[in-house]
Computed example of a mutant assay.
Amino acid sequence: MAAPIDTLVTVFGGSGFVGRHVVRALAKREYRIRVAVRRPELAGHLQPLGRVGQINIVQANLRHPASVKAAMRDASIVVNLVGILTESGAQTFDAVQARGAGAVAQAAAEIGARMVQFSAIGANADSESAYARAKAAGEQAVLAAVPSATILRPSIVFGPEDQFTNRFANLARMAPVMPVFGATTKMQPVYVGDVAQAAADAVDGKTRPGATYELGGPEVLTMSEIIDIILATIERKRMTLPVPTAIAKLQSYFLQFAPGDFKLTPDQVAMLGVDNVVSEAAKVAGLTLDGLGIAADSLEAIAPQYLWRFRATGQFAHNGMN
């Protein structure tokens, strides 16, 4: 394999939450990086993550195969991070996470590039969730075109720019009561920095060809326990109210039209009804962060580094719970 400095990696979706950390990890390992995004003018924040000229941003849309092929020209390795949490217009789960992933894989196969595909724990062709079904279809399309591809399935990813811990911390700042959907559902929150390191290892060729890795943090927590950790971190006392699934489904039909952090879709309720943890099979096979030699960071260790801004007393003053 060529030295990193002589290797071009195309990263689709590199401007998002996970993407920026993957780009930074690859830049630290001296790869040349081409970041393919729908809106290049909104990806300027990536430039300082590498040396001058190391990171190049281009336009591409997974729904337009010609742009995908152009973004992949001369690349040796392709990383596809593109995913959406809710559908909007032409940006449907199937178009982006199934057919879009297939388009990237087909283009990679044509030029003989290695591929790393981001999916999610819970990807399942038989799932009640359209998101999970599309993720599973994307995996199948990728492996059909590039059998040697590495699939990375993270659990819930947290970090400074996430739409998970920040969302609930912001809600706690505004609401006296915290409704908890999927209160008993088990999750294995994984730090975005650890996920990015796993992606960089896959680009390095340290993962097994054609294998699916499940990435989870050091702790399995229920949704209620995660909310408790967030509340303790931001030092706010709030009553938590577990919401039964039937009521959550009913509320989601109205909340799917709500703005910002109040939004909740029926598909998200479906996902919250299924545990999101690393399987025993993945552990036994060594297809985990631990198997890659990555010591995962916990939510309690990392969250205070960025959730402090939601404390009533700020970063340094600690006057008890509010």
Rank of each mutant, 00 (worst) to 15 (best):
A71Y: 00
P160E: 14
D162I: 08
V274Y: 00
E280Q: 15
D297F: 09
A175K: 06
G320A: 08
G13M: 04
H45L: 06
G122R: 13
F17E: 01
D297W: 11
M115E: 12
I77A: 07
A232H: 12
Q197V: 13
I234S: 06
V37Y: 01
S148P: 05
A113E: 00
S127N: 12
A211E: 14
V52C: 07
P218G: 05
V203E: 05
E225A: 11
V277C: 05
P179N: 03
A141Y: 05
P259R: 05
A125D: 13
S15E: 08
L250F: 13
V157P: 01
A137S: 09
G273D: 11
E214F: 10
Q117M: 07
I77C: 07
S76H: 13
A105Y: 03
L46Y: 07
M72V: 02
T185C: 13
A296Y: 01
N80H: 05
Q268T: 10
Q268F: 10
N124Y: 10
K135C: 04
F118H: 13
L26E: 05
A98T: 10
Y253S: 13
V180S: 03
V177I: 15
V52Q: 15
I230F: 05
D261L: 09
S88C: 09
Q188K: 08
L241D: 02
K237L: 12
S155M: 01
L171W: 02
I156R: 00
P209L: 07
A303H: 02
P65K: 10
R133V: 06
T313Q: 14
R51G: 14
F12Y: 11
V277D: 01
V9A: 04
G216W: 02
T240E: 07
D74W: 06
G320I: 09
T233N: 04
F118R: 06
M223N: 11
Y131T: 03
P48K: 06
R24W: 09
R34C: 01
P259Y: 08
M321Y: 13
L152K: 02
K249N: 13
T207H: 11
R236H: 09
D94F: 12
T233K: 01
A66G: 02
V142N: 04
I156K: 04
L307E: 02
T265Q: 09
V180R: 02
V146Y: 05
N56T: 15
T222A: 10
F17R: 03
E128C: 11
K206D: 12
A183T: 09
G44P: 08
V11H: 03
A198G: 06
G260M: 08
T165R: 03
V277Q: 00
E139T: 05
A123L: 12
Q305L: 12
D94T: 14
V203C: 06
R24L: 08
E235K: 15
G182W: 13
L171P: 00
A66K: 11
I111M: 14
A27E: 01
L42Q: 15
E225Q: 15
